[in-house]
Design a protein around this nucleic acid. Structure first.
Lengths: 359, 359
DNA sequence: GCTCGGGGTGCCGGTGTAAGA
DNA sequence: TTCTTACACCGGCACCCCGAG
């Protein structure tokens, strides 16, 4: 096992070489004020000569923290989580923490592994976003209180800080937007049944129909997974169940991009024949043809907030009640649901735009 | 600082509760054979009652390794590195290691930070892919020998295991393919000057021109960054310098996708007016319109190899000479360089294909 | 008595080894 | 033998102590 391979010197060796005590070396290395300039220089010379680097493990054992937090996401290939990760990374770096990323691939086992890393003090804190909040998951949160932030809704009494987004409202905004455009038969391509995100989306979809007086029909809904290929194949099934669709709401942008691709293959025009809207606001929305309308769920913002909350706890700044922070989705209208669709069709459009914030 | 927050019990407390010594608890927890069934049960009961989880830091201090490796990539938002990360992750999990991901954002500082994490024994091993191999970088490799694998070419004498891809050959394959299609004026959109990937690509580009008897002209080359937006803006500059382009080679797929997007806006047909080829083989190639021809650099394969090499070293299985593994790029022909372009124009094409392996 | 620079040492929480029942 | 214990030790850090000014 061990091997402690090419370690170059301990604090004792440096101390011996510099002719001081280990305590002094420690003070110099940690920029403690209590040392004279000349001693400092002698020590630093010895450090340089030996190539001494403090052993992080030993330091952690003594100080009680390892200086590292982790972010666990279901799929690091999903641009939404990349945006989230970059935001957390920014916070961590600014506050002097090392961030490590873990991709759970949606597996419970991996999520629990991350929580156990926390319990075993491999890391000091954890931000985790889970697609399905299970009982086992909630149970494992108990012993690591104050060192976890969950992104995604958890039951109210759960003893963690929690960052939420009203994705139900987001779904409602998207669908109401389609309806207000004149769409009457709006298909919904949802993610896998039973996951937290898919539950709130279907709920928002129904709310929107209700608020505008449209009927819900299960013919208008299909499930698939949250990827481009998922949307690509799901739209076929949807069109089979309901050939005269005039609008599609996809549960995320990746799926919506797949839908655009397939509709183009089937020579259906967007938004003329079918208006399409996604959710998340990934970069690809502005590259797609036509550019994709969407509802942003503010992944980066949630990441930033989660990072701050976690570090406030872990650094001991915050000891109060469990925080519940909710961010509000915003509609971004682009070409795929453009109101000007009749006039602009067939002519070159303007380049990828930032999307027009709306409402 | 410290805080050792909600830690639940140490090995001593468990030992006291079970009426045994700490050493016995340690043996039980680690499934050491030397212990009687009844003692084992008593200990396990005590463990469960207290909710004891071994302190990973303390264990690491004694055993000399932390059970964690890291993968540092320039940009976790790049699908190439995602593919690489997933491959490494698979290897790490299979061999019982924890993998953490770090995104350096191309910053030297962050790369050196990762190397210092290694030197300070925060992690046991590191796989790192760097865009620019600097002297400072090479210098920092010295003290952590045998615990680093570099993906991307380093000087021959560098004391690390090294996984390479002949990206120069890859670039040559791409450009020769365009020439063999009949292209005469092939623009090249390269990444930032001075990076390792861009250097080998321009070299391959020139080799291809030479091998087919075409002239090199600096008018045909522009630089930008390795993103969709990079390609999107670079093609404008390229067309300004050379309005009658008939082929474009982009240094990676992301840029090529940006090119496709811009060409569509400018109503230029692909491949009819301009053939386009990228490099990397990211998933988007099969979703783009038209589907994007490319040269795969086998990112996942390189990740897998790097993972195995690193763990062989870190586990002490391998102590021999520094390994140099080279993988060979392969051309994948899709619609954006389709030979059938004249015939198929204007009709619906077949769906996203896997690409036809070639040569 | 107080400040300042520096030294001695117990300790963090496990693990491995040699000795003991 | 077979199981268990005592104890040194991993490598820093932080507290407390000391002497000199």
């Amino acid at each position: 096992m061990a091997r402690r391979s090419s370690r170059r010197g301990t604090i004792q060796e440096v101390a011996r070489l510099a002719g001081v005590s280990p305590a002094t070396v420690s003070r110099v290395v940690n920029n403690s004020p209590r040392c004279s300039p000349e001693t400092r220089k002698r020590v630093l010379d010895a450090v340089a000569q030996i190539g001494y680097v403090p052993d992080h493990v030993a330091r952690s054992l003594k100080t009680g923290n390892v200086g590292e937090i982790a972010l666990a996401v279901p799929d690091i290939g999903n641009p939404v989580y990349v945006a989230m990760a970059k935001a957390v990374q920014e916070v961590a770096a600014r506050r002097g923490w090392w961030l490590s990323l873990a991709s759970t691939e949606g597996s419970q086992t991996e999520e629990l592994r991350a929580l156990r890393a926390l319990a075993g003090r491999r890391i000091d804190g954890l931000i985790i976003t889970s697609l399905t909040v299970s009982a086992a998951f909630l149970r494992e949160l108990e012993p690591v209180q104050g060192r976890v932030v969950v992104i995604g809704r958890v039951p109210d009494e759960t003893p963690v800080d929690n960052v939420r987004v009203e994705s139900e409202t987001g779904a409602r905004l998207a669908v109401e937007h389609l309806i207000d455009l004149g769409c009457q038969r709006i298909g919904f391509i949802n993610g896998m049944k039973g996951t937290v995100p898919s539950t709130s989306r279907i709920s928002g979809y129904k709310l929107a129909l209700g608020s505008r007086g449209l009927e819900y029909s299960s013919n208008l809904v299909v499930n698939s997974d949250f990827t481009i290929m998922g949307g690509y194949e799901a739209i076929d099934r949807l069109l089979e169940q309901c050939p005269d669709l005039d609008g599609v709401f996809a549960a995320n942008d990746a799926m919506a991009i797949g839908v655009l691709r397939k509709l183009r293959e089937r020579s259906m025009r967007v938004p003329d024949d079918v208006a399409v809207i996604g959710m998340d606001d990934i970069d690809l929305c502005r590259i797609a043809t036509p550019t994709l309308s969407t509802v942003t769920l503010l992944a980066a913002e949630r990441g930033r907030i989660a990072g701050e909350l976690l570090l406030d706890r872990v650094e001991g700044r915050e000891r109060g009640e469990w925080q519940r922070v909710t961010v509000l989705p915003r509609l971004l209208v682009r070409e795929s649901t453009s109101l000007l669709r009749k006039e602009q069709r067939g002519t070159a459009r303007q380049g990828p735009g930032a999307g027009r914030p709306h409402s």
